[in-house]
Every structure is written in C-alpha cells, then in structure tokens.
Simulated scan of single mutants.
Amino acid sequence: MRKFIIIGGGQSGLQVGIGLLKAGHQVRIVQNRSADEVASGKVLSSQCMFSNAVQHERDIGIDFWSTECPRVEGINFIVPNPDDSGTKLIDWSARLDSNAYSVDQRVKIPRWMAEFSRLAGQMEIADGALPRLKPTPAKTIW
C-alpha cells in the first residue's frame, strides 16, 4: 500500500483521492476549507460537467446527481462587439453529442468530502504549505 498526500480537496483532488482509496492506498488530503465552509461559501467555478468528466465520476462511484440534476444539451457562446453597437463579434451555438450536467460545487464538494472520509481517507483542514508536510515514505508523489 502506498501513501499519498494531495494538496487541495476540490474537483480534481477529491476525485484522485477517492480513486486512490478505492485502489487500496492510504490518502491524506490537505484542504483549506471544511465541508461547511465550502457549502456556505462563494461559487467555486463553473458547475457544468461534460460527458467525459461525468463518466469518470460514474467510473469511480461518485456521480451522485446526474439522474436528478439539470441536463445541458447545448452550448451558446457570444462575444459582444466592443464598440457598443449592440452587434456581436461571435455568436456560436451547438448541440452536444452527449448531455452535460450542472451541479453546484457547493453541493458536490462537501458530498465528496463525506465520501472520502467514509472510505477512510484522512481529511486535514489546514493550509497546504509544503515545508510542514513531512512525507515518510520514500516514494511519496508531490
């Protein structure tokens, strides 16, 4: 069993951490906010997850929402003309090949943190300054 320390318990850090736990490794995530702080905080980033990302969540057993959350069936991208004429420099739209899904990360991240802990991962709420993290195994990956 290998031991891993992951700095950051967001979208990527929790997915990697949960995947490593399910593969039989010991994992500690150092995250600067608790689940309650994330849940009551500001929007973290875009909530839209496209089909490949959703499939990855399904593959590691953490897609808790796509059966009930809003489907995103297409995209529209608009760039207004900077001359304030009301015209658009770009107005592009397309349907997606597969649905994307929208889940607010203030809901998603706390649920994944609970799943990480349920799987016996160690969650440490602290700033992730490298000098204070003292790895003991020779093969710790940073």
Rank of each mutant, 00 (worst) to 15 (best):
S45G: 15
G19C: 13
L20G: 00
S46T: 14
S40E: 12
A23S: 15
L20A: 14
G17L: 02
A35H: 10
L20Q: 03
Q26V: 02
S45H: 02
Q47Y: 04
S40K: 12
I18H: 01
V30M: 05
K42R: 00
A35C: 01
S45T: 11
A35M: 04
K42E: 12
S34F: 03
E37V: 00
L44A: 05
L20H: 06
S45P: 08
A23R: 08
R33G: 05
A35V: 09
V27W: 05
S45W: 01
Q31F: 01
L21Y: 03
N32C: 10
V30K: 00
H25L: 10
H25N: 13
L44H: 04
A39K: 00
H25V: 04
R28Q: 15
A35W: 06
L44Y: 06
S40F: 01
Q31C: 03
K42G: 00
Q47E: 04
G17P: 11
I18W: 08
K22C: 06
Q26S: 14
H25A: 07
H25W: 03
V38I: 14
A35G: 11
S40A: 11
S46L: 00
S46Q: 08
Q26N: 09
L44I: 12
H25Y: 12
V43Y: 02
E37R: 01
L21P: 07
L44F: 01
V27G: 09
S34W: 12
V43R: 10
A39G: 03
H25S: 07
V43H: 07
G41E: 07
V16F: 12
K22P: 07
L44T: 00
S34V: 06
A39I: 12
V27Q: 05
G24P: 13
G24H: 12
S46N: 09
N32M: 12
E37W: 05
A23G: 11
K42M: 03
I18E: 10
A35R: 03
V38H: 01
A23Y: 00
N32A: 12
Q47W: 10
G24C: 13
L21E: 08
R28T: 11
R28E: 15
Q31P: 02
L44P: 08
V43D: 12
V16K: 08
A39F: 06
Q47H: 12
V43C: 12
L20F: 05
G24F: 13
V16C: 14
V43G: 09
N32I: 06
A39D: 13
G41I: 05
V27I: 03
K22R: 15
G41T: 02
S40I: 04
A23M: 03
Q26M: 05
I29R: 14
D36R: 09
S34P: 01
K22T: 04
G24Y: 15
L20W: 07
Q31G: 04
S40W: 02
V38F: 04
D36P: 10
S46M: 08
